[in-house]
Design a protein around this nucleic acid. Structure first.
Lengths: 240, 240
DNA sequence: AGATCTTGTTCACATCCTGTTTACACAATT
DNA sequence: AATTGTGTAAACAGGATGTGAACAAGATCT
C-alpha cells in the first residue's frame, strides 16, 4: 500500500493567508512534494488548527485581517519553537527583518520560487524534528491501563509489555481512541485507515476489530473496550 | 558539563571566504554582537579550525580557491549537522538553490544587510543549540552492551572490540540511536544520512540496515535492536 | 597517472507479512 | 422462525522486506 505509506510519512504544513490565490499556490507546491497541507485564513483559524493537529511548519502571511502576522508570530513563539516562514509582499522590507528578529526562521517574497521554497522548508523541518527529540512525550493516550504512543507507533500493556500492532490495527485503534464515545460506522473507519469506499460485503473492519480485541481485551468474547453497536458500527468506550 | 559551557561561552562563528574584505566585514558584524569569530581562507584552513574548535555556525563563501563552497558543504554535511549559511554573489542564483538542496540552511547575498544577517544567524544558532542539547549531553550512547562514540565515530562491542562502520552505517545508526523508540521512515532516514529524495524503489536503506544488523545483532535474522515496522520503516528499540 | 580498495547504490529473487476475502457458526432483531 | 448482522478461523494475493551479488563513482595508495 504505497499510498498509505506516503500518508504516514507526511509532514504537516499549515498555510495561514487570507488571500486564496496565495494559499492555493503554496498548498499546491507542498502537496505535489508529498506534504500534507492545512489552511487557515486568519489567526483564529490558525489557533484552531494548531490545537488540533501536530504541525511541522507554518507559512505565515505578514498581512492578515484581525491580528497581523507579526502579532501571531510573537504569540506562537511564546509557547512553541515550531518552524515559521513568513510570507511577505515586496513592500514589507522592514517588517521582514522585524519578523526575523522576533524569531521567524525565514521569509519568502511573492512571487515564490518553488524550488527554493521547498528546499528551505525541507531543511527547516529537518531542524525542528531534530530539536523535538527530548520534548515530544505528549502524544500518548491512555485507557484502562494501556498506553498508545502515537509517535512511536507503540502500544504498551498495563503490565508494561510492548504489544506489536500491524499498521492496520494501529490505525484503527488510533482512529477509535481519538473519538472516544463516538460510534463510528465501518464506512467511517475504512475511510480513515485506508481511504477506501465501503461496500456491504466488506468484512475487513470486522476482522481487524477482532484481531485488535484479541490483543487488548481481557476477555475478547465479551469486549469491554471496543464495543459493537449492532447495525451501526463500533465505539471505543473504555471503563474509566 | 558541556551544556553549561555551551550556554555561558561565546558562540563561535567560522567565516570561510578568500576575499579579505568580505571576511573582515562579516567578522566585524558578529564581533560587535558579542560572537567569537574564526576565519579561514579556504577548505584546508576550514577543516583545520573545525577539527580544533567547537563551531556553532559557518558562513561559507560559495566561490573559493581549491574545493569550492558547494563541495565543502557536501563534505561537511556528510558528518555534521552544524548550521551553515552560504555567502553568494549576485550571479550565483542556481548555485544558491543547489546549496539549499544540499543541506545549507540559508544564504546571504553581497552586499550584506547586517541586521538581517544577524537575525538569521541568531535564529539558526538557537535551532542548532536546541538540537544539540538532546544529543550531546553524552557523546557516547550505550545499548545492549554496545557503545557508540559520536565524536570518534566508533562503535565498541560488548566484548570491547572496535567494530568498523562505514560512513553510511554510522550515520544510520546515529540517527536511529538519537531517536530511540521512534519509528523512522526510509524517507526520513535517507534525508538524514544523505539529503536525498526517497522513491518507492530505493532499497538503499534496507541494504544498509541489513549490513548494520549483521554487525551488531546477535541473531541478524531475528533482530532485537533494530526492528522493522512493516509498511512504515525502522525503529531502534534495544532490550532494556 | 594507474591500480586497488572502499562504499553507497542497484538489481534480482526468495521469503515474509498483512489486508482482504471466503465461509460458516452464532447472535440480534423483527 | 426468518432474516439480517457479527465473530472468527482459514486461505489468499500482492506488496514489503531480507539479502547475496554486481556495479560504479570516489577515495586511497603506489
Amino acid at each position: 500500500m504505497p499510498i498509505k505509506q506516503k500518508i504516514l510519512a507526511k509532514q504537516k504544513i499549515l498555510v495561514v493567508d487570507d488571500d486564496m490565490t496565495s494559499r492555493v499556490t503554496l498548498a499546491g507546491y507542498f502537496e505535489t512534494e508529498g506534504y500534507e497541507v492545512c489552511e487557515a485564513e486568519d489567526g483564529e483559524q490558525m489557533w484552531a488548527v494548531l490545537n488540533q493537529e501536530t504541525i511541522n511548519l507554518i507559512m505565515l502571511d505578514i498581512r492578515l485581517p484581525g491580528d497581523d502576522g507579526l502579532t501571531l508570530l510573537r504569540d506562537i513563539r511564546k509557547s512553541s519553537d515550531i518552524g515559521i516562514i513568513m510570507v511577505t509582499g515586496k513592500s514589507d522590507e522592514i517588517d521582514r527583518i522585524v519578523a526575523l528578529e522576533m524569531g521567524a526562521d525565514d521569509y519568502v517574497t511573492k512571487p515564490f520560487n518553488a524550488r527554493e521554497l521547498l528546499a528551505r522548508s525541507k531543511n527547516l523541518i529537518r531542524r525542528t524534528l531534530n530539536s523535538k527529540v527530548g520534548e515530544e512525550d505528549d502524544d500518548v493516550k491512555t485507557f484502562s491501563g494501556w498506553s498508545l504512543y502515537a509517535d512511536q507507533r507503540r502500544l504498551i500493556s498495563p503490565e508494561g509489555e510492548d504489544v506489536r500492532l500491524t499498521r492496520g490495527e494501529f490505525e484503527l485503534l488510533s482512529t477509535l481512541v481519538q473519538r472516544v464515545g463516538r460510534v463510528l460506522t465501518r464506512d467511517n473507519l475504512l475511510d480513515y485507515i485506508s481511504h477506501r469506499e465501503w461496500d456491504p460485503n466488506d468484512r475487513t473492519i470486522d476482522v481487524l476489530i477482532g484481531r485488535l480485541r484479541r490483543k487488548i481485551e481481557q476477555d475478547p468474547q465479551n469486549p469491554n473496550i471496543i464495543l459493537t453497536v449492532h447495525g451501526v458500527g463500533y465505539v471505543f468506550s473504555p471503563r474509566q
